[in-house]
Structures are given as C-alpha cells and as structure tokens.
Design a protein around this nucleic acid. Structure first.
Length: 197
DNA sequence: GGATCGATCGGCT
DNA sequence: GCCGATCGATCCG
C-alpha cells in the first residue's frame, strides 16, 4: 500500500475531499496498526468560509490551516473532544478536510478498548469518536502526514466510484451565506458507518 | 428510530 | 465572558 503524497493534498479542497472517500487512515499506536476506510469528510475552504476556524484570520489555534498541505490540524472542542483535519491547497491559503467517519478495518479490538467497548458501528462514526478510537490528540496538531516516520498517515486504497459518493450540507453549519449552504460534506452512499444517514 | 439536554474548557472578542 | 466543525445518556414512541 502506498501513502498519499503531498501532491495529493496540494490540490483544490473539494477534489481532495471527494477523493479521500475510500482511502485508508492509518494510526500506528504502540507498534500496532489501527486503520479505517474513510467514509465521510467535510471541506473547509478559505477565510470567506464562515464555518471555518480560519474565517477570522490566522490565530495560534488555526495556524496549521495556513501552513503547507499534508499536515494535520487537530483541535480540541466542547471541553472534551478532539477533531482531525488534513490541510490542503497551498501555504498561506487556509483550507482543510475534516475526517468525520471511518469504517474500522484493522486494530478493532484496540479501538474498542479505547472506546469503552462501544459497538462496532459507533466506534469511529463521528469526528471525535474516531479521534478517541485511534488515539489522535493535540500532540498531532501540526504533524506531517507525509513524513516517512509518521505515526499517522493516509494510504491509497480503492476509492469509490461517482455513483457511490453523496454530498450534502456540513453538519452543525447554519446560515444563508453561499458557503454555509454549499454541499461540502461528502460521504459514501449507503455506508452504515457515516455519522448521520 | 428520533429528539432533547447536559457536560466541560480552550480560544477568541 | 461566551460559545462551539460533539458525544452520550435519557427520554419518548
């Protein structure tokens, strides 16, 4: 299995988001491979996107979004949850893809142990759930997913055909501005592992 | 199955 | 001070 290169991420964010469906997120934890098939993502694009953490310009928190592509942006929210994004496009243009849900593939027992024994369908079906299952926390904020020794990276897998890719508005995003109603959520049609049907 | 509500704290204004 | 790219428990049907 080959890893996705920086060139993959250095493209239009909607293209990256769409093509991430069906790829494999891998976390090496205590020498074990924990992995899952990406089944749901959301794109956050530019400072004009008012749903993006970058919409007020660069801050200490969102700095990785303004950095080069292929790096992680991990943030802490609601006082108890982590969410994982992959930075896209070019340096100094803030854009990223939020990984929202996986279908567990490898290391399922280890994931379940980290998630207090919840059933398989809930193990990684949510942005904070998958971070808990894979042990992704703020230590990965700014980590290079393309580094040879990375403990978190994305492997090329089968992908999905266009008729299996569905779109919709982003979860938790409301408002009338064009960017807020844009169909920037992508998910695999019919997957039981997406966070919302 | 779906709706509602409380938990809990870092980052920003 | 305020609020959030959420989750899980609990309620209802």
């Amino acid at each position: 299995m080959s890893r996705l290169s920086r060139d993959f991420f250095a493209r239009d964010t909607l293209t990256v988001a769409r093509e991430l469906l069906g790829q494999r997120l891998v976390r090496v934890l205590d020498g074990e491979r924990l992995s899952g098939r990406i089944v749901e993502v959301e794109a956050y694009i530019g400072e004009d996107d008012r749903a993006s953490h970058a919409h007020c310009g660069p801050t200490g928190r969102n700095a990785p979004m303004f950095g080069p592509p292929g790096y992680a942006y991990v943030y802490f929210i609601y006082g108890m949850h982590h969410c994982f994004n992959v930075v896209t496009e070019r340096e100094n243009y803030p854009a990223a893809v939020l990984i929202r849900a996986l279908e567990p593939l490898q290391g399922i027992e280890a994931m379940r142990a980290r998630r207090d024994g919840v059933p398989n369908l809930r193990l990684t079906s949510g942005p904070a759930r998958l971070c808990q299952a894979l042990g992704i926390d703020r230590l990965f904020d700014g980590a290079d997913l393309c580094a040879p020794d990375a403990l978190l990276f994305i492997e090329q897998d089968a992908g999905v055909p266009d008729d299996a890719a569905a779109t919709g508005s982003r979860v938790g995003v409301r408002g009338n501005a064009a960017a807020l109603t844009a169909p920037w959520r992508f998910y695999i049609r019919g997957s039981r592992h997406v966070s919302r049907q």
